[in-house]
Amino acid sequence: MKYICLGYIEPNKFETMPETERNAMVDECLTYDDELRKNGHFAGGEGLQPPQTAATLRWVDGKVSITDGPYAETKKQIGGVLILEARDLNHAIQIMSKHPGVKAGPFEIRPAADLSEMIRESEQRRAGA
């Protein structure tokens, strides 16, 4: 079962951290990620550039409108995404509780939706069309 872990962080927290502290944290996180990779728990993931680098697309008046910045202005921003392979929600919680990144900001763990039924139905509709 796949779980998507959204790692949140306060704006600029990372950038304003003393360098030694920041390096230590990065090393810890990457070491743990390596361990997850080695055990087959790491099914993908990326760190994100800051929200000001975002472009947001919206459907407005029948066409796509593009604006700068994130869609939602919240106090905590998503700093990274990790896709976790785990047995169930408790296993995912257990694995992520040991991730050093949790010290920098909260993780939100969400199970991946099983879309196979939706895809199957859609394929049938499209084949029939």
């Binding site: 055990n39 087959g40 728990h41 785990a86 047995r87 296993h91 257990q94 694995i95």
Partner: peptide, 10 residues
């Protein structure tokens, strides 16, 4: 043990 079971089946 939880991890070990998971790893063993994998």
């Amino acid at each position: 043990a939880e991890d070990a079971v998971h790893d063993a089946f994998a």
